[in-house]
Design a binder for these strands. Structure first.
Lengths: 164, 164
DNA sequence: ACTGAAAATCTACGCTC
DNA sequence: GAGCGTAGATTTTCAGT
């Protein structure tokens, strides 16, 4: 089972290449995109729109340097939630996702229930965040913090598995 | 200490607003961007270019639905590296970052040394990845896998801390 | 930082296969 | 139905101020 989108409308080679190129540079002009694909601009435009309509392309975002935002210190915070219920998880998740320090929230299975990726100005701010924003919440059982030395994201995501 | 960029060239309110808007929609036309900021398009264009030149804007990327790529199953994999040396960490990090299953790699302090964020077609593929790509490596001491039920990313990152 | 004008691009639409 | 070419509208871009 590989996602319902693949059923509604399979992505052909042209779509895949568009997705690849726009992951690398979302500001490529439609004209340039068409040139690289070897198709007419009008064709390319329609493809890109269809991909957005189908939800394959979810948006276009500028990638900002965290240092420049004064947030050079990053950490992963793993935490347990109790009681572990849908309601409590959802509430905490919503709350933490809204905190400015938080880049992303993972709801996970296993020893931990939530993992937060946070970015703050310095270690003092990290400490304050942990003590004042997390420790105080009674639904949070305990947490473990790992400071991040380095973070590498892969630039282009390709389709994986069963090639239709 | 809030990042060297802030020293080289402080970001003013206009820059901050550009960064905010382009994080939300990287495909905003320069014209529209200028309109929302209340400045001339030429001014806006120069600001955007300067932000890219300074490295504040690191790039523009299309956000692709993982389901559509046939990668609906995500997990966090925490692992220990041994012997824990710069050389070994760097090599493993480079290797795993190149694996198609891996979305991102965190080098961390604490109980674990590396945390991988992976996305695969299904649980079988996840299992195979763990056994065939990770278990076999002698430098990897052990690992713990947490399947991800939900992942929320914050859409716009703001500057934090000491407002100059 | 703005104005204006030339060059490039976007995109709607009718056409062909 | 999918892709193409054209033409009119829009945008980008760079002088000069």
């Amino acid at each position: 089972m590989a996602g319902i989108e693949a059923i509604i409308r399979p992505m052909d080679e042209l779509d895949a290449e568009i997705v690849r190129l726009l992951q690398t540079d979302a500001r490529l002009s439609n004209r340039e995109l068409a040139r690289r694909l070897g198709v007419a601009p009008s064709t390319c435009l329609e493809r890109v729109r269809a991909l957005a309509r189908r939800g394959v392309i979810r948006g276009y975002h500028a990638d900002i340097d965290l240092q420049a935002l004064g947030r050079g210190v990053q950490a992963l915070v793993s935490l347990q939630v109790r009681p572990l219920s849908r309601t409590v998880i959802d509430r905490i998740q919503g709350d933490v996702a809204g905190m400015p320090e938080v880049l992303s929230v993972f709801v996970v299975a296993g020893g931990d229930d939530l993992v937060l990726h946070v970015a703050v100005p310095d270690l003092d701010h990290l400490h304050a965040f942990l003590l004042e924003r997390l420790s105080r919440r009674p639904e949070i059982g305990g947490f473990r913090t790992s400071v991040i030395f380095q973070h590498v994201r892969s630039t282009v995501l390709e389709r994986l598995g069963d090639p239709a």
